[in-house]
Design a protein around this nucleic acid. Structure first.
Lengths: 242, 242
DNA sequence: CGCGGCCTTGAGAAATGTCAACTTACGTGG
DNA sequence: CCACGTAAGTTGACATTTCTCAAGGCCGCG
């Protein structure tokens, strides 16, 4: 089984010591893709690179929204807490993803690191000023927001009307496709988040996630490995998702 | 099924001499709020007023996205169809709402009229051209997209982690608040959509919606009327929603 | 080696779904 | 203006999926 996480780390190793966006390996995926060299330099001067260890909180629901972030390595879990310990994981931010698209004055969700995460942090005020001076950056941000909205709509359909089997299969497939854009296509899908994270994302329980994955494995659709699954039967797998 | 497109075009002709944007009652709520008088005139020249009778389709999932719309009167239901007759209602567009924020080349959802609907239709190409010339319009559209995203995230939490009682109560409250912005605050909440629409929006069945509303009425939290409910106990009602 | 976190599995419970009957509201045509 | 037909809404009885609670297994780490 190939280790996607390692791959991503390698991609970013160059970034860790190179302060400039120009060397960033996820640039073409991130907000930054909209900018030319001089603009990139400008954005660069606003960015602060941050390392976040596993499980550490990046930002907290209800706090004043002082910064926005672009993920350059690792996986971030984004969630809302409800009464009685209920939690909804809205999604997972992967390298290239932007955190802070759906912004008001206060954060509407909590974000914390699943594994070791590397971020570019932007002061919100500064970022918004840059935004007002760079229409192409605004346009890029808008198209990212639009994309997020499309994904959110798919997720609503999943949460509202899909069976547990469909939910789990669709989640695995969507993670496969997202990793493919970052690190290339692979039948092995890294799942660095816990079963509880997945459950809270899919609106089911940890036990149901576990049983469903076991069931998919018994049907020889996947192999269940540590922090990953391998898709064996593309075809039948895709059928579950329609 | 009849050819909706033809019918809509006919209706459009018959209402082409509708009043200018300046007289529009929902202008301050809609995209148009970002524009000054001369810009408004420009937008006006792109807009075609359209009347849509109840149940008629405005746009269809999978079709080429040729136009975007601003709702000026009535209620639009926006949904995705899944296999086996399952449906997820993503939301209801009220006067002032924009249809086509989450846009790719093809529509990602179907939209049709709940009651009698009036729209401003914009050719997508023309609208996008205007957008590239009017940064404030883009900025306004982006903030509307951001707002949609926040709402979508709340809806995910609702669909993923809320009980049927909470879902129904939250829906009624959200409709109350949305109508308040359009027509002023009132304890009576108009619900022009059917129980099936509500059920498919909340990820439950029509029977569960019905039972839950009956239950809320028995508890004297609401009065259940035709196409509306009246909220009797703000306090206890709000408590269910936290 | 043993501890703790995470995952899996099983058995019974609960919420919601399904199916079916019945009521109500409403518009049409006699 | 009434009678009828249809669509929408309500209610009840029973089915099913998923949840809850509980026990045990696996694995990395001190």
């Amino acid at each position: 089984m190939t280790d996607c996480k390692t791959q991503v780390d390698e991609l970013n190793r160059s970034t860790s010591n190179a302060p400039f966006c120009e060397a960033c390996k996820v640039r073409s995926l991130a907000v930054c893709a909209a900018l030319d060299r001089s603009e990139l330099r400008e954005l660069d001067s606003l960015a602060r690179r941050i390392d976040v260890p596993p499980k550490k909180t990046i930002l907290h629901e209800g706090d004043e929204a002082a910064a926005v972030y672009s993920v350059t390595a690792g996986v971030v879990r984004i969630y809302k807490l409800l009464s009685q310990g209920r939690r909804q994981v809205l999604g997972f931010a992967l390298p290239g993803d932007f955190i802070g698209l759906a912004l008001r004055n206060r954060y509407g969700f909590t974000a914390d690191a699943v594994d070791h995460v590397r971020l570019c942090r932007f002061d919100r005020r500064e970022f918004e000023q840059l935004l007002s001076r760079k229409p192409r950056l605004l346009s890029r941000l808008h198209s990212m927001a639009t994309h997020e909205l499309v994904i959110a709509q798919d997720q609503m359909a999943l949460l509202g009307r899909r069976t547990a089997d469909e939910r789990v299969a669709m989640f695995i497939l969507s993670m496969r496709d997202r990793w493919a854009k970052i690190a290339g296509k692979s039948a092995t899908v890294e799942l660095p988040m816990t079963r509880l994270d997945i459950a809270d994302h899919l609106g089911i329980t940890i036990e149901t996630v576990s049983r469903t994955i076991t069931k998919l494995a018994r049907q020889r659709l996947i192999i269940n490995g540590p922090n990953a699954v391998r898709i064996l039967d593309e075809q039948r797998f895709a059928e579950i998702c329609r």
